[in-house]
Design a binder for these strands. Structure first.
Lengths: 145, 145
DNA sequence: ATGATAATGATAGCCGTTCTCAAAGACGTG
DNA sequence: CACGTCTTTGAGAACGGCTATCATTATCAT
């Protein structure tokens, strides 16, 4: 069962209907392994010949976000990005290079457990957490010298 | 030496000049211990009778951010917030309640060292990192039951 | 097939942020 | 202190991402 299939059926059973635009968005996202902005999704679908409206892209993303099928990623540049949640409870975070803009995913169990420890110690029930590390990637550090 | 004074003199030695708007922004921020949005700063200064322009607030914040005197905080709602960096290398992160919108600062050495371990292991030189935990605060959890 | 109803997409609107530019203010100099 | 230069300032326009609106289209149960 691929993420694309799971997602389509989860969406369908939630809303009762299924439409073409939403399916296109899901199928495109299913082919990614890191985040994509709504604009990028929209452009990509248009380039492929689809007649998809901006609003439909945002609606699809919003719906998936509420169901936890997609993770909203905020890298601080004023653009929301989204990526498929392939495995529940097994997500990743992002390293962003300030020089070249490259975005790399990473995951780290030590970081996860540190976060859980913080939340638990403060009576918080944490539904989501974002970690963004910003700096210079290895390539850019070498070029700079 | 207060943060306000340090910041004003650092700004002055960087740009060579000093203006009234920037000073008002710095003085207001110096009185805060958690983050404030540009709008909030702008409104607050206007309410106090100052004739401060939007652009000046953003310019001041931008300048301080570049000098590391202020930390840009992105809580994912499309609004940039800023808070004074009182002590270099000793910053905090944020817990955001999805129900009531409350923002609480926290700091945790375990989390910091986990982050450093991740960055080091990937050849990244990390200049900044943001951690945002979202969930339900203690008050809202009790009310909900 | 048909009708009720949800999804869609073009477009207008909203809001935070940035840009523009003329006016005002700050500093070094005479 | 007065002057000239150069930066800062502030009003408003412009911009970009996102949301709202609403007529049209598509879906599904019957």
């Amino acid at each position: 069962m691929t993420w694309t299939d799971t997602t389509l059926s989860r969406l369908r059973e939630t809303t009762g209907r299924s439409g073409g635009a939403r399916r296109l968005v899901v199928e495109l996202l299913g082919r990614q392994d890191c985040c994509l902005s709504a604009q990028e999704i929209h452009d990509s679908l248009r380039d492929a010949g689809g007649r998809v409206g901006t609003a439909s892209v945002y609606r699809a993303l919003d719906g998936m976000d509420e169901l936890g099928l997609v993770q909203r990623v905020d890298l601080g540049d004023g653009v929301a990005r989204y990526e498929p949640v392939h495995d529940e409870g097994h997500h990743h975070h992002h390293l962003v290079c300030d020089d070249c803009g490259k975005v790399e995913p990473f995951e780290d169990p030590g970081l996860e457990s540190a976060i859980e420890r913080v939340a638990g110690g403060r009576g918080y029930s944490v539904a989501a957490h974002d970690v963004v590390l910003r700096g210079a990637c290895e390539d850019c550090r070498q070029h700079r010298d």
